[in-house]
């Protein structure tokens, strides 16, 4: 039996909807005095359990609001589950949406080091990967230009290049392969496939079932915070496609 990379055990996440966005004292005070601080509970995830073995590629499917992003946040360790527990072994590299971790005034080169440090990698390690990152992102001519002048495709390319070059144990891809031109999409898919051979574990969120079928061997389908299907990528994609047709 292969080693477990991620074990999600009966995880539930609850948000207090009313309580969520009171960001000034006046509002808080008024609500407090008038006792309107009601707690409308919203369970984004209910009782989710599954395991991902090392080297497995899990596709996560679901319509908007099904809880995909919340699940990824819990796995990435940014959000603490209300109930249940998560065990993750190894380094996680999340692919931020369109380079959310970049500083816009910083050049591409400087951002490479900042981004890698955010994932906990030392500068010397990043230096050894630097050429590889620049080559893969094809940004040689723009690497000293501030990122604010990059197009969104260029930012995505740079972000992808960094997240894959650092050789993480677990790679989280949140609808990132849908950006960039066709050429880069093919290239990045090939890159991910080459990482499979090194035994990387992948969590892949997408609405594109063709991509999930191609890249993943396992999938789960979320709906309203619960898992409604769990199985091989093909099985789950079939169910998802059927659901799409019904709607």
């Amino acid at each position: 039996m292969a080693k477990t990379a991620i074990a999600v055990d009966q995880v539930s996440v609850m948000f207090n909807l009313n309580n969520e966005k009171i960001d000034n004292i006046k509002e808080y005070f008024i609500k407090f005095v008038t006792r309107k601080l009601r707690f409308k509970e919203f369970w984004a995830l209910r009782d989710i359990s599954f395991t991902v073995a090392k080297g497995e590629r899990l596709g996560i499917l679901g319509f908007n609001g099904a809880g995909k992003s919340t699940l990824l946040k819990v796995i990435a360790g940014v959000l603490k589950p209300t109930k249940g527990s998560i065990k993750v072994s190894g380094v996680i590299a999340p692919m931020l949406e369109l380079g959310a971790g970049f500083d816009m005034n910083y050049s591409g080169k400087e951002n490479i080091f900042l981004y890698a440090a955010t994932m906990g990698y030392p500068r010397r390690f990043t230096e050894s990967k630097y050429d590889e990152i620049v080559d893969f992102s094809e940004l040689q001519d723009f690497i000293n230009v501030p990122v604010k002048n990059y197009s969104s495709g260029m930012r995505a390319r740079l972000g992808f290049a960094i997240a894959t070059a650092v050789e993480p144990d677990i790679l989280i891809l949140d609808e990132v392969l849908s950006v960039g031109d066709a050429k880069f999409r093919i290239k990045s898919e090939a890159k991910i496939k080459s990482m499979f051979e090194k035994g990387v574990t992948v969590l892949f969120v997408s609405h594109n079932t063709d991509q999930v079928r191609r890249l993943c061997n396992k999938a789960i389908l979320l709906d309203k915070g619960t898992i409604i299907a769990l199985g091989t990528a093909d099985e789950v994609c079939d169910i998802y496609d059927e659901k799409v047709k019904k709607k």
């Binding site: 990435a76 940014v78 999340p94 931020l96 955010t118 994932m119």
Partner: peptide, 9 residues
């Protein structure tokens, strides 16, 4: 915020 929401630091 954009980093804290996505990566554990």
């Amino acid at each position: 915020a954009s980093v804290i929401k996505k990566v554990y630091v």
